[in-house]
């Protein structure tokens, strides 16, 4: 059984640490402490962390922080970062205005 999905696993209480105030997600300004706390609040997957905190959901879409967030979550869960499934990739990969996203080119005659 995949240890990561074992939600009954006790990873202990959240205890604040030096460095918790460090910004990790630059776009949404999410700190290391917030990410660590979220894990202790039951967010065991990258997708959950994303939805819970918005880390990696800002303008850059996690370009800068996803590896950093993964490292923090893995450490909190005491697993290797390689064992954590990355958050879901979905359209759009890059920031895009809604008006552009909705503007599908319907008839392309060239």
């Amino acid at each position: 059984m995949n240890t990561l999905s074992d939600r009954s696993r006790d990873i202990g209480e959240f205890v604040s640490q030096p460095g918790d105030e460090m910004i990790i997600c630059r776009c949404e300004e999410i700190t290391k402490g917030e990410i660590r706390r979220a894990v202790h609040e039951g967010m065991f997957t990258m997708t959950e962390i994303r939805r819970y905190l918005r880390a990696g959901m800002g303008l850059c879409q996690g370009q800068t922080c996803s590896k950093l967030v993964k490292g923090i979550v893995a450490r909190e869960l005491k697993v290797s970062p390689a064992d954590l499934e990355p958050a879901t990739s979905r359209v759009p990969m890059r920031p895009i205005e809604m008006k552009v996203f909705a503007n599908e080119n319907e008839d392309e005659d060239e």
Partner: peptide
């Protein structure tokens, strides 16, 4: 920061 349009 990144200078190539990624980090915003």
């Amino acid at each position: 920061f990144c200078a190539i349009g990624r980090c915003t």
